[in-house]
Nucleic acid binder design. Structure first.
Lengths: 205, 205
DNA sequence: CCCTGCCCTGGACGGATGTCAAGATTTTCC
DNA sequence: GGAAAATCTTGACATCCGTCCAGGGCAGGG
């Protein structure tokens, strides 16, 4: 008999998927708290009202659970960033709004971003994560590129950078800010704002 | 009786330290192979000619071993980067040399750099690692800033970026290149070269 | 009413892990 | 050469891990 987690559901697919999401959300909270290396299935279950055995009813193994979590994180991530490019009248306004948006994103959920960088590192060791991580990275790159494109439209100039390079630069700033923010440096957010606002025009020289 | 690993050695301090370094180097190889989350003390010992018990003779616990490894990694790291700013006659030459230097560093030991980003992520969860990681980060920042300063000297212009922001930008490029390089993208190195060469002048506008 | 799926619990398993201690082996020193 | 100290091995410990499984409620339909 195949495990229920591996076979397609005949009926009540929605209920099944719903509980998977519920469990994955709890898993994400635990992961964000402890990090990938310190999170066990039992600890995850302790953060729910269910027992640890249930996790194997909804997920074939630990890898499938984590992978599902990563995908779920991605959905939430993309949704949040969708409205990041606020309406801005001038290039300078957009540059400031960009820095403030990223800083707000960081301050809003630093532990989730910490988890993201953890999982992205893990994907370099665990091949199973690589595909989903690459997808998220691609989505973030698109998000940044929409920002750059909006800036280009306001200035009338063409960006002199590839989308991937632009993303890498912003990501570098963001990750450093996260490192300092979690380390307790209270100037991290302001520095991130300034650095982002300063970076945007540089992509056009 | 206190554990030998916790008390100062009366004699043969050099021998003691020498073996610590030897064990730490073996541990670094294992860590680079498997990543922090999958590396156990027994696995480390298996990569040496010694038994697993010996690790607790030279290190109080796992955290002290990893911390020592991080410090040791730092030393090797700094030493390698010392000569990165090669002699260059023109700004353009330096920009190209910068990209080639970083690309060569990546290609030379990709697994070590993967480990670095893994450990830096872990430091966000394990407070014990934070100090050493911050020190390494500072050293890398200095290395990048020496590069920027050399470029400034050649052009006669003043950089318009803080040292930390410059480091964050280069680090973003480097990390993305590593991600792609390990993912199997054979264009990663060339893109890194180009992106670095393009970034350097941008720090002066 | 019982029967058949579905949902969930709780315990058990084999194995791995960090840590420790007791003893064997080697080195050092008088 | 022999005592003492340093070094190293071996085995054990408690604990935790992922996984699996036997079974208990609990629904709905015959």
């Amino acid at each position: 008999m195949a495990s229920p987690a591996t076979v397609g559901r005949r009926s009540g697919v929605d209920k099944f998927e719903e509980r998977r999401r519920e469990l994955a959300d709890a898993a994400l909270l635990t992961l964000a708290d402890l990090g990938y290396a310190r999170t066990s299935l039992r600890t995850i279950a302790d953060n729910t009202e269910f027992s640890h055995g249930l996790l194997h009813y909804y997920f074939a193994d630990k890898t499938e659970l984590i992978t599902y979590c990563v995908r779920r994180y991605k959905d939430a991530c993309m949704q949040r960033y969708e409205g990041l490019v606020a309406v801005a009248a001038t290039p300078a306004e957009l540059a400031v709004a960009c820095g403030e948006g990223l800083a707000a994103t960081l301050a809003d959920a630093p532990l989730m971003h910490r988890l993201w960088y953890d999982l992205r590192s893990q994907s370099l060791y665990e091949e199973a994560f690589r595909k989903d991580v690459a997808e998220i990275d691609g989505g973030l790159q698109d998000m940044i590129w929409r920002l750059v494109s909006a800036y280009a439209e306001l200035t009338g100039a063409e960006p002199t950078t590839s989308p991937s390079a632009a993303y890498a630069l912003f990501d570098g700033l963001f990750q450093q800010a996260l490192l300092r923010y979690i380390g307790g440096a209270d100037t991290a957010l302001d520095e991130l704002k300034d650095n982002c606002a300063a970076l945007l025009p540089r992509l056009f020289v």
